[in-house]
Simulated assay, not measured.
Amino acid sequence: MTDSIRQAVKRRIDELGKSQAEVARSLGLQRQYLGRMLNEHVGEVPESWQQLLDALNLELYVREKPSTANSQKS
């Protein structure tokens, strides 16, 4: 993932008032692995996709999903 996506995910975790440990637990991941995903180059965009995006002058980004009654979780 790109640094901007990592930063957006970190901000969202903070906005939701959750810790990385809570998020990791909810995903069945170890906290250390989630930390590496957010702080290191773990889970990179596959090189062929990055090359394609670069060639087309495109980039990945994250945005919040629109809220719907069916997609809300407690």
Rank of each mutant, 00 (worst) to 15 (best):
Q20V: 05
R11A: 09
S19I: 09
P46V: 04
V42W: 11
R12P: 02
S26W: 06
R25Y: 13
L53T: 01
L56H: 10
Q50E: 06
V62Q: 04
K73D: 12
P66E: 15
L38N: 05
V62D: 00
D54F: 02
S74V: 15
A24H: 06
A55W: 03
Q72W: 07
Q30P: 04
L56Y: 05
N70Y: 12
Q50V: 01
L56E: 06
K73T: 12
N39W: 06
S19G: 14
S4N: 10
D54R: 05
D54M: 02
A21L: 09
D3R: 10
R11Y: 12
E22I: 03
V45A: 05
Y33R: 14
Y61Q: 03
K18A: 08
A21Y: 00
V45M: 09
S48K: 14
D54V: 02
L38V: 08
N57K: 13
L27P: 03
W49E: 12
M1I: 08
L27R: 14
P46C: 04
P46H: 07
S26I: 03
G43P: 01
L58W: 07
Y33V: 05
E40H: 13
R31M: 10
H41Y: 11
L16P: 00
L60M: 10
R11F: 04
V23Q: 07
E22R: 05
R12M: 02
R12F: 03
G43S: 07
D3N: 11
Q7R: 12
Y61R: 09
V9I: 14
A21W: 00
Y61I: 00
L16Q: 11
T68K: 14
E44Y: 04
M37N: 03
V9S: 04
S26E: 14
A24V: 09
V45S: 01
